[in-house]
Simulated scan of single mutants.
Amino acid sequence: MSVRKIEDDIFADFEDEPAPRLAAFDGLARVVSIGSFSKTLSAAVRCGYIAARSEWIEPLVDLKLATTFGNGQLAASVVHRLLVDGTYRRHLESMRAKLADAMGETIRRLGYAGLEVWTRPRAGIFVWARLPDALDAADIARHALAESVVFAPGNVFSASQSAAGFLRFNVSQCNRPKVYEALQRAMDVSAASKAHA
């Protein structure tokens, strides 16, 4: 088996309109596409799928069985039922509408807080925003953590460590005023520390 690329597509079902996929362009000749229902249904549903060349499937199944010692039959049966009876499609429609509302509200509130949204996502659960005044995201995250609010600093996701001024927000978790209050206080403390440095 000479797999050249793995296309990790676990967020695909959040999209209203599917974007082009590398595996589709390649016809699965050198690309293995993987997906999951854990993000759209529940983290407890440890069930996903693999799309690959037919001769690669059996070795991948052997690898899965050798490393997990099980097959998650209950989760697979639940997902199968939801797919067959149309429940999953209806669930996605409802979830996408709720996430679109949450995305709009999060972007609006981040703007009020003085953050600049890097790019407005077409769908999904994450939005990236640049902090004002060259504030350090790790510093903001540390201050907010003292108030039990968790922010994701950009450099956690950056191999080049070039995202120190960015935070990543999960819009499904940004519906509480406490998030923005903690963000504002953390930014104020960080800005004051920077001014006295």
Score class of each variant (00 low, 15 high):
E7N: 06
I10A: 05
F11H: 14
D13V: 05
D16L: 09
A19K: 15
P20Q: 14
D26W: 08
G27N: 12
V32F: 05
I34F: 06
S36G: 10
A43S: 07
A43C: 01
A43R: 10
A44D: 03
S54D: 13
E55D: 15
E55R: 12
E55T: 12
W56M: 11
P59C: 11
L60M: 15
D62E: 15
L63W: 13
K64F: 15
T67Y: 07
F69K: 07
N71R: 05
V79D: 06
L83A: 09
V84L: 12
H91F: 06
L92V: 03
E93F: 05
K98D: 09
A100H: 09
M103A: 05
E105H: 02
R109L: 15
L110E: 10
Y112N: 07
T119I: 13
R120N: 05
R122V: 06
A123C: 04
V127H: 11
R130H: 12
L131D: 04
D139V: 11
I140P: 02
A144L: 09
V150S: 11
V156E: 04
V156Q: 06
V156F: 05
F157T: 12
S160C: 01
G165S: 10
G165H: 15
L167K: 03
V171E: 00
Y180I: 03
L183F: 07
S190C: 08
A191F: 02
A191Y: 03
